[in-house]
Every structure is written in C-alpha cells, then in structure tokens.
Amino acid sequence: MNLVINTLDELLAHAHELEREAVERYEDLAGQMEVHNQPELAELFHKMAAIEQQHVVKVESLAGSQPRPLAPWDYQWQTPESPESVPVGQGHYRMNPHQALTLVLACEERAEAFFAELAESTSDPAVREMAVQFAAEEKQHAELLKEWLARYPEPKADWWQDLDDPIAQE
C-alpha cells in the first residue's frame, strides 16, 4: 500500500493516532512489567507513555482540536501497527532495561521512517514541511534513546533462563 497523505488534517490524524497508540502500548507494557515484578521497567514504560502523551497534546494543539479519527484500518501505516507502538508479541517477562530501551528505540526509528517516507511521498508542501518536522523530532528522540541505551549493559547470554517451571493457573 502506497503512502498517500496530501492534507494536513490527514497528517495530523495519523500523527495523533500514532502517538495515542504509543501511549496505550507503553501503558500496557508498564502494566505487564508491574504484574511480572519488574518495577524498574514498569517505571520506564510509564515514563515513555508520559512523554508520548505530551506529543498527543502537542498534535492536538497543532490541530486546534482532537483530530477526526479514521477507522483503525484506514490509517496508512506501512507496518502491521502504528509505527511508534511496540509491536504485539514483543517484550519478555525477564527482559532487562537494555532490551526494553531497544524496543523503544525501534519505535522511534519506525516513527521517523514513517514521517520521512510521508514527507517524500506527499504532493502537498505544507504536509511535507510538517512531516519533515515530525521526522526530525522522532530522530531527536532516537538519538536521546541511544544515549540512554548506552548506559545499560546488554543482557547476559542466559538472560531468559528461569529455573522454575511456568505455573499452572486453572
């Protein structure tokens, strides 16, 4: 599916949904980490959610109101989900901050790629200008995340190992 966005309304709708879903997914992950006794990662994902929430607000202020939502399947994501969300199936109950930040970094990079591609493909100069700006912001976040990432060691080879079996629940 080719990316065709030629109005600011459409761009803002996409940007809004992208940030909103990122918030949702980070909150989901924060909850998962709380349930799995990873308070440090829970805090990290809450923090990411809060940052993305600021972006939601920013997009709303740019749009002047909450943009008109599209049907979930009408957004022109070039990925299975909106690009700034950690994809379903990612994450692990034993992951460490390095791995978590790697997931987050990938989100920022996908978002940057999305806006960059949008800027390239659009025929509308105003859309291009705003998309370029969004791409630059995402790139900036990505750079910041790379710095954070460098502070955390990579996981050990056996990071996923758990001496206990899973627990039967029902």
Binding site: R20, E24, D28, L29, G31, Q32, M33, E34, V35, H36, S65, Q66, R68, P69, L70, V88, G89, Q90, G91, H92, Y93, M95, Q169
Partner: peptide, 27 residues
C-alpha cells in the same frame, strides 16, 4: 464519522492488569 472520538481504548480497559505473559498475542 464523528468530529471527535466518543470512545477510545481507555474507555473499555479496566484497572485490572492482565496476567498474560509479556509477548502474548492476546494483548
């Protein structure tokens, strides 16, 4: 299509956190 969304994800999600394993497709 409404001008603003009447409902979103948060209106349907309760405060109870899933016990599913992180990475589970059910999320």
């Amino acid at each position: 299509e409404p001008l603003i969304a009447r409902y979103s994800h948060k209106d349907y999600k309760s405060a109870v956190k899933p016990i599913w394993c992180p990475g589970c497709g059910h999320f």
